[in-house]
């Protein structure tokens, strides 16, 4: 079923306190749910943090995940996003010998640029929808990136 592996984005608002992240990740591992990516950062001027979790599963599984997350005492809200703006960042490190102009042009098409140049390597960044970032990373592979790091998705409901 196509439904089974559907990608979902869930935002969780939690009290920013010790071990709250383990409560969330323990729940996923303990109940056999997947985490594709997870980002977490404090919400400005509040005692809460926001997690964005990319996961996959059927509607039924996602409903269970949402309910189980809600059951955790420090969880304030859980949203399963339908209509959202979603962004992810990636950093890429290249040997200085690679074509920096090509790479800069490509990155620019994905809201990115060259962010650091050293003696032997330079670093580029992009920030775009996760699918587009994925696409870029495929293309960029022919420039022999030495390292790539992805941030995981963050999302906001429209």
């Amino acid at each position: 079923m196509q439904d089974e592996s559907a990608r979902r984005v869930i935002s969780v608002i939690v009290v920013n306190e010790a071990s709250v992240l383990s409560r969330i990740t323990d729940l996923f591992s303990g109940r056999g749910y997947n985490i594709t990516s997870l980002t977490v950062a404090p919400i400005p001027d509040s005692r809460y943090s926001r997690l964005t979790i990319v996961t996959s599963g059927s509607i039924r599984v996602i409903e269970q995940i949402t309910k189980q997350l809600h059951k955790l005492i420090p969880v304030l809200k859980v949203y399963e996003h339908a209509d959202l703006v979603e962004k992810e960042m990636a950093l890429m490190k290249f040997p200085i010998s690679e074509n920096i102009t090509d790479i800069a042009t490509l990155c620019a098409a994905y809201n990115g640029k060259i962010v650091n140049v050293g003696d032997n390597v330079f670093i580029a960044m992009v920030a775009d929808e996760p699918k587009r970032v994925e696409n870029l990373l495929k293309i960029i592979s022919k420039y022999n990136p030495k390292e790539i790091v992805r941030s995981g998705a963050v999302a906001l409901e429209r």
């Binding site: 010790a18 071990s19 303990g30």
Partner: peptide, 16 residues
Amino acid sequence: AVGISRSCTKHNYLVT
């Protein structure tokens, strides 16, 4: 202890 009891309690606390 709280790491172990997390998955088998309704809630837990380490008092600091």
